[in-house]
Design a protein around this nucleic acid. Sequence first.
DNA 1: GTGGTCTAGACCACG
DNA 2: GTGGTCTAGACCACG
Lengths: 128, 128, 128, 128
Amino acid sequence: MFPIDVRDIRPIYEQIIDNIKEQVIKGILKPGDQVPSVRQLASMLTVNANTVTKAYQQLERQKIIETIRGRGTFIAHVTTKQVNEDELEDIRKTLKSSCMQLYYMGFSKEDVVKEISKIYEELIREES
Amino acid sequence: MFPIDVRDIRPIYEQIIDNIKEQVIKGILKPGDQVPSVRQLASMLTVNANTVTKAYQQLERQKIIETIRGRGTFIAHVTTKQVNEDELEDIRKTLKSSCMQLYYMGFSKEDVVKEISKIYEELIREES
Amino acid sequence: MFPIDVRDIRPIYEQIIDNIKEQVIKGILKPGDQVPSVRQLASMLTVNANTVTKAYQQLERQKIIETIRGRGTFIAHVTTKQVNEDELEDIRKTLKSSCMQLYYMGFSKEDVVKEISKIYEELIREES
Amino acid sequence: MFPIDVRDIRPIYEQIIDNIKEQVIKGILKPGDQVPSVRQLASMLTVNANTVTKAYQQLERQKIIETIRGRGTFIAHVTTKQVNEDELEDIRKTLKSSCMQLYYMGFSKEDVVKEISKIYEELIREES
DNA sequence: GTGGTCTAGACCACG
DNA sequence: GTGGTCTAGACCACG
């Protein structure tokens, strides 16, 4: 599967969320694909099952996966998510914090744009 | 001073850090300017003095402010911070998470670039 | 564990820092070893948990220990720390103060060298 | 006179103590020499008079200066100070902390000895 | 159970 | 008056 880094700043459940999202965006996981059960993934990543549960709950709330009782958990069929203003505001705060840190490291606006463009491109690079 | 938002995802001390950084970047606070004492700022924001202390300690470690014994706390004289690879890697992870969230909201690469450009520009608007 | 001396000139959190550093240097604590949890150490030393937290935070900043979310705190895997000129200058000032005190007690250069050699040797005695 | 560095880790009163001790050790100030009055030194260094008072009190307790009522303050006539075991123990703790810091910066015993020798020599270099 | 955040409040060192 | 240290204790996030 994918690696969990216990030293990562992000909590483990967020790493799981980010990894699955990334695989969906990159097309590695496609709508209808089954994802491992909570217990399977927990043992694959050697993390606590509660941690995977938390990640799956959030992914489900975000309509990225869906659980069908008795059958398992699957990648949802894409429904472009509508813009949530509160969430967007939180993202902006995060971006602003990152910008300030980069500013202090001497990054110009162009440097920042270059950085984020590269990140976005790597994400949606067709069939990675 | 500036508002503390208890509903903000960021802890209070981080909001304080971000706000002061922002004022320095925008040139509202200049090198040598005195910032409110721990107790003053605490009562202005109606937060506990320890919370302000924590924010100030981190700002001091980042060389953004400096404390002069018995006199108070001041904006540091700029010393361009050198790039820390570990820190940069953490920022990249944060940017990637934000990109994925924005992608799910339907933001194209151009939209994301526009968004971050606006944020960066607002930050340095008044020739810092 | 180790004793806290309330009469010591150093604050408690510094005594904790120094004690753990010493155990690491002496090889009593090895990379990967778990150190007591904040609460455990606090009750062992009968000090407040916040005091231990402060010591651990500084040790973490110095890359001597690392915290793994929900699992505990561990001795870091050694990464030789690079020389920080500012820090070195501070150490030199401290050494100079000590030298002057010793000079007044009648210590010759050879006495001082003998003293510090003994201290250093006791530190690394058991092949760390 | 001598410079006070408000950014120095040492409190101002300690800087004053250290500076006067240093001048005595180096022979710049000799037994019987008059030192500035508290108010004079305070205005020379632009520090608070209480700070100078504190420094002078400690220097007097250490028999390095002596105050003659109505006449002023003078460098004391040398009387080799006897070794105070408690004080020596404190110095050892300080030296140990410094050794540990230097050890973490990669200093060998020889490096540390070289460092402290240089500091001691610069101190007693005849007529600096 | 683990550490992180925050409060209220005391006391101290420095100036 | 300024920040630094420390306590007691609450509540939260993560696992």
